[in-house]
Amino acid sequence: MSRRRRAEFDTKKKSTFALNITSMTDMFTILLVFLLQSYSTAEVQLTPESEIRLPTSASFTNPTMAIKLSLSGTALKMDETKIADIKNNTFLPKDLEDSDTNFIKPLFQELDKLAKASPEEKHIKEGRILLQADRELPYSTLRKVMYTASMAGFPQLKLVTLVGE
């Protein structure tokens, strides 16, 4: 009984206390150093596609403003828009020109539309493309994208890679 009364008395007592924030400041300092290390100064921020495993390269060139294409084992996308389907590492026959099997019709139409819509933009004028492609894809599939891009007036193809040896 007496013990309970004493406890009640303690909680009712009005008091101020100083929070010890030294350890929290330590934690924030470490976090700040880590974030400063991974701070990116690149002109373009690239978001890796979940379906694509990029190849690694020793190149240390930052990406520049360009049209972003991504080529996975299932689809060819421009930004987030799907342009053509891929099955068994090849494009479907309906997306390819009958007389020229390297020509991807929907890709050409999209690139042509972009080139006509904003011809004054520097990256479109210079014909720059940033291609994120899955590392396991065969060259024959990539070649179709390169061929069509070149035909649409985009000859500067920049291959996106991960940093590593």
Binding site: L35, P48, P63, L130, V160, L162
Partner: peptide, 10 residues
């Protein structure tokens, strides 16, 4: 921050 560093070959 860029947690995945991506570069280009050019």
């Amino acid at each position: 921050s860029a947690f995945v560093q991506m570069m280009v070959i050019e």
